[in-house]
Write a protein that binds this DNA or RNA. Structure first.
Lengths: 199, 199, 199, 199
DNA sequence: ACTTGCGGGACCACCCGTTCTT
DNA sequence: AAGAACGGGTGGTCCCGCAAGT
């Protein structure tokens, strides 16, 4: 049922998601909802979002772990997202972006879940960049570019129903990250042996 | 009234926007709505979105025109967005992102307006990059990064209620664009006098 | 415009007739309605009904006048109604029956117009029967049968979208009326020379 | 609730019947309607009509069964209708006549229910006449007269708020039917012993 | 004199998330 | 656990004024 909720949330946003729709699609009886989720729709949405967020976190972590470097990890994650979009007929997307935009102010708990999710995903990227030798400040800024790029890319791909956008974006972000990693490596060398700076 | 509609759409998305809310906030009587918008809510939303899109287009164009180069134009636009977010108590955002996410499939005309808006904004950026000497292919890819970055940045900033995110992102994107412009300039020189390439 | 009103009234009844529909179908400007009919919808309906009633009265009178006897007049009228039904795609009908059934209690003036119309039509039939030699009492009773039969026949024909019903009914009513006329004539003779009565 | 619906339908027709009126009069809660009638107003109207039709069918059958002959059955039914009209303050009437006149084209299922109801009632009369010895053709034509007469009589009685109309009509129809039955009996004898025909 | 453009608000059918009762 | 009940809210239409135009 939570998965059905998550799916409908993706497609229609918070306000567009009627509990009856979820009930129908998950073929669950009407009354039992308030047994499992005494908090009603909001609780159901919150838990469904938590679950969806955890999936994304896992996928993101795996992308970085399996990749030879963070740059490739970013690209692999974009590729994964592109594949999922195609498979879901462009219904897939960031599980929190829509909620941020249409339920931000009315369901505070949901908003904070979204924030935490974004923070966690950002931390994963930052950690990967740091472990590749990038100083924390640069890593944070770059992770912001990556995260914003991916979030925006998901929206653009959905709008155009075209997953290629995400793939191109993945390649571009990979290049950007790789260039930043090279620059960071150079800076690091420069610091250790300042005489050889600039050359 | 259209502006009120646009404002409410920003905050609550398509499904969360009740015509009665718009009516109340704009202090307009219920019956006169369907004189001006015989198509009802959908027509009202469509026209409000068109208006908001036009505003964004104008602002984007102005940012590029007033800036010394496209890189600075991107940063200036991010800065403008950051300012608007603060002024609107983090209610400002992309006028089509939310609609894409929660009304994509049910109001086809709205979806196509969103697509066209994104295309137009993208074209503006591409044109600016091209006129700065970047080849069309690179310009397109870079514009995608910029557009996705801005879109994503608006969401992140809204989620965290923190406009600094947008400013940092603006600086990063500026650097990315500037680097790309430099590279493009170098490539151009190389082509003209290949012997002096790379040094 | 009144004719359009009458037509729509036939099809949808009083409550189903929206002034805007009438306005659209008669291509009349919206505001001019309340210039010509300061009383609004009700006045328009009342006048349209009056007009339609007058038409029916004229047709009914003509049927009786042109016919060799009242019996044939009844049948001719039924035949006329059948033809009109076919021509109007089974939209034609008694202009007051529908109003009686769905606006009887809320628009008193309309109700009284309907009553008067029925009375007038009945009088026409009674007069015709009387002038054919039938005593007033019998004429009244028979006119009731005829009127009820026609009214009911119009409804049945509309329901089945089949004008043959009205034609058969016309033939039957003709026979009934003719038999009654014969009986009346016999009674009259009997009264004048009572010895030859009954044989 | 269905009975309330039927009652309001009688008084105001299809378009004049607001669900809220029905809800108020039956003191039912607003929302539970769409649980019992997911099809909304139309389904409610359809079911209410079906129920009312069934009642009429039963009453009609009983009238014929309890009567010594079909002629008396017709009169008894008219008498019953007259009594019901008086008791209901002239609100009672044919449950389908009004619907035929004001919802014929917009709710197809309702229209077909009305047709079927008329057919059934007609069959009952035809069957009764046949079982009294009348040939099928004559029975059909006569049943048409009876049915149209009753339908029309109900409208006239409602318009004049006078049940005596129905009673007189009942007597007249009884006489008509009895005369027809006698004629049918004579024809039948004639056929069996043609020599004694006509005398 | 007659039309137009626009307001104005009551109301309608329908759907919502929720809570009883069993 | 689950069908039934609940009432407030949804988008939309209704009939009707009222100013300014022609």
């Amino acid at each position: 049922m939570l998965q059905t909720t998550a799916r409908v949330l993706q497609r229609r946003g918070y306000h567009g998601t009627a509990v009856s729709t979820v009930l129908d699609e998950s073929e669950a009886p009407r009354g039992s909802l308030y047994f499992h989720f005494p908090g009603g729709k909001d609780q159901m949405v919150v838990e469904a979002t938590r679950l969806a967020v955890a999936k994304v976190s896992a996928a993101l972590r795996k992308s970085f772990e399996d990749a030879v470097d963070p740059a490739r990890g970013v690209r692999d994650y974009a590729e994964l997202a592109a594949k999922l979009m195609e498979e879901s007929d462009f219904t897939f997307g960031c599980p929190v972006a829509g909620l941020i935009l249409d339920a931000g102010e009315e369901v505070p708990e949901l908003a904070s879940i979204c924030r935490e999710a974004l923070d966690e995903w950002s931390s994963v990227t930052v950690a990967s960049l740091k472990s590749a030798g990038m100083p924390i400040g640069r890593a944070r800024a770059l992770a912001l570019v990556v995260q914003a790029g991916i979030e925006g890319g998901l929206i653009l791909a959905r709008a155009h129903r075209d997953a290629r956008l995400l793939r191109t974006l993945g390649l571009e972000l990979e290049a950007i990250v790789r260039a930043a990693l090279r620059r960071a490596a150079r800076s690091a060398r420069k610091k250790k042996s300042p005489r050889r700076a600039r050359r």
